[in-house]
Amino acid sequence: MKLTIQTPHFDVQEKLLNFAEEHIRKLHLLNDRILEAQVCMKLDKSDRGDNKVCEIKLIVPGNDLFASKRCNSFEDAILKSVSALRHQLER
């Protein structure tokens, strides 16, 4: 599975990239037909605390899957997005 992570307009620490990769690669265990995962982590211009957004698109033959979550931290946003995709894959 090919994994692409984009972080427009800010620099990200290696620790966060490894965290995202570790959890997203686990989705491949549920469905080995996943060809690619495209991840975009961005900061939303908001006064609220939940301004970290993680969007994940899985490229699967015949049916692409998408999840987007907004949280107080990127780690939480990644976990919730992966959980939503896991639920979609199990259906």
Rank of each mutant, 00 (worst) to 15 (best):
F19E: 06
L85E: 00
R48H: 13
N72S: 11
Q13V: 06
L79W: 01
E21F: 06
Q88H: 07
K42P: 12
A37Q: 01
A77V: 00
R86D: 07
H28W: 13
D44L: 15
N51G: 10
K52E: 06
M41F: 12
D76V: 10
N51D: 14
C54P: 03
T4Q: 03
V60S: 06
L89T: 03
D44I: 15
C40H: 13
M1H: 06
M1K: 05
L35R: 10
I59P: 00
T4W: 04
R25V: 01
N18D: 14
I34E: 06
A77L: 05
F10T: 10
C54D: 01
H9L: 11
L89D: 02
F19W: 12
L27H: 03
L3T: 11
P61L: 02
G62E: 09
K69R: 15
I5M: 08
S68W: 05
Q88W: 09
V12N: 05
L35N: 09
D32L: 01
M1Y: 02
Q88Y: 11
I78E: 01
L58F: 02
L43K: 14
A84W: 01
M1C: 02
Q38A: 06
L30K: 12
A77P: 00
R86E: 15
C71L: 12
I78K: 00
K69F: 05
D50Y: 10
I59L: 10
E90T: 08
K69T: 15
D11M: 11
D32W: 04
V82P: 03
H9G: 12
L58G: 04
T4P: 03
A20P: 06
S68R: 13
E75N: 11
K69V: 06
L27S: 05
E22Y: 11
R25F: 00
L27M: 11
S81Y: 05
D47P: 15
L27A: 10
K45Y: 02
D50L: 08
V39C: 07
R91I: 01
T4G: 04
D47T: 08
E21A: 09
D11F: 09
S73Q: 12
F74K: 01
N51A: 12
F19K: 10
L89S: 02
K57A: 11
L58M: 08
D50W: 01
E90Y: 02
R70D: 10
N63W: 14
V60I: 15
L29N: 11
D64Q: 12
I78G: 04
K57G: 07
C71I: 03
Q6G: 02
D76I: 13
S73M: 13
I24M: 07
E55G: 05
D76F: 13
S46E: 13
E36A: 02
T7I: 09
V39K: 00
D47R: 07
M1F: 03
F10Q: 10
L43E: 14
L85G: 01
H28N: 14
N63E: 14
L85I: 03
L3N: 02
Q6C: 07
N72W: 10
H28Y: 13
A20V: 04
L29G: 09
K52S: 04
R91W: 02
R91Y: 03
A20C: 12
H28I: 10
L89R: 03
S46I: 04
L16A: 08
G62D: 06
E21R: 14
D44N: 14
F74N: 00
K69S: 11
R48F: 14
L89H: 00
K80A: 13
D11I: 10
E21Q: 15
